[in-house]
């Protein structure tokens, strides 16, 4: 039991560290903000989760201390990871960061343009004097 447990915990922590390193590598390698965001949100989140879970198992089985803080940390990272990725991407797109030149398809651009025009019209209607 203890042999298998040790092996499993070591595997989880190593795998988590490896995933973190690979996603850092992806941050350097991928061409634009959005694809970097793919690397940063997914594999980095999974890497942190694996490391925390490994630490949790270690504390539970070998030090006999159930650490609720680690569980809460797992839940928080799991919830906030994708939201942070979404907000980064959204802010980047709205402030006009362009995509990689090999990108093929863009449905968002016309929609955003329409929305901006509508906002301009409505603000003009609110303040007719300023135009």
């Amino acid at each position: 039991m203890s042999q298998i447990g040790e092996f499993l915990i070591a595997l989880m922590v190593l795998l988590g560290a490896l995933l973190g390193a690979l996603s850092a590598f992806g941050l350097i390698r991928l061409p634009d903000v959005y694809m970097r965001s793919h690397a940063a949100t997914k594999s980095a989140t999974l890497g942190v989760l694996l490391i925390l879970a490994g630490a949790f198992l270690y504390f539970t089985f070998y030090l006999e201390h159930v650490s609720a803080k680690l569980l809460l940390g797992i839940i928080f990272v799991f919830i906030t990871g994708p939201v942070a990725g979404h907000l980064n991407g959204r802010a980047a797109y709205r402030s006009g960061v362009s995509m990689w030149e090999k990108s093929v398809h863009d449905d968002l651009k016309p929609a955003l343009k329409r929305e901006r025009e509508r906002m301009r019209e409505s603000s003009n209607a609110d303040h007719p004097g300023k135009g």
């Binding site: 390698r29 991928l30 061409p31 634009d32 959005y34 694809m35 995509m99 990689w100 090999k102 990108s103 093929v104 398809h105 863009d106 449905d107 968002l108 651009k109 929609a111």
Partner: peptide, 10 residues
Amino acid sequence: KLDVQPGIFA
């Protein structure tokens, strides 16, 4: 070699 075609779809 990076051969993907990123894009945005609705």
